[in-house]
């Protein structure tokens, strides 16, 4: 399947090992930098935290790309196969945005929900959820 010779693909594999290990080390370093382990006090700046986060996410996506296309040989498969596996994962972009926004909304409404929970329940004079008594109901309705 592979278009590379045996020797060349063997080399490529050990290059991949070095690459993934190096990227992982950089990720851990950037993560610790963002948490203030490398430079004391760096974690007080939200710019540092966000930049570190974005760098880590991009590097992880690169690692994922490398594993799928090199180690799992997606690069050498027919385009239709690659698309049929990869395109559905685009749905996750929508899921991530929707659920994270929802999670953020839970946080913002936490106090509101607590306050509502603490309110005494209103006494209701009439039964709720029924049709108003003057609603016209045709005789042959049932």
């Amino acid at each position: 399947m592979s278009t590379l010779s045996y020797e060349a693909s063997k080399k490529r594999v050990f290059f991949g090992l070095g690459l993934l290990a190096a990227v992982t080390l950089v990720e851990v370093f950037v993560s610790l930098l963002g948490k203030g382990h490398v430079i004391k006090g760096a974690e007080d700046y939200s710019l540092v935290i966000y930049t570190a986060g974005i760098i880590i996410i991009v590097l992880s996506l690169y690692k994922a790309y490398f594993i799928i296309f090199e180690f799992m040989h997606m690069k050498y498969e027919v385009k239709g196969l690659a698309l049929s596996v990869l395109l559905p994962t685009a749905l996750l972009i929508w899921a991530i945005i929707a659920f994270f926004q929802e999670g953020d909304s839970w946080k913002n409404r936490r106090e509101q929900i607590k306050a509502k929970d603490a309110q005494p329940a209103e006494k209701l004079s009439e039964p709720q959820g029924m049709l108003p008594s003057d609603t016209y109901i045709p005789e042959n309705w049932l």
Binding site: V85, I96, F99, G103, R110
Partner: peptide, 22 residues
């Protein structure tokens, strides 16, 4: 691919709950 969606569901739930917590 289907397994990736299962894991994505778990990890997105983690993200949503993390976002929802102060």
């Amino acid at each position: 691919l289907s397994d990736a969606f299962t894991f994505a569901g778990f990890l997105i739930a983690y993200g949503a709950l993390r976002f929802s917590s102060p």
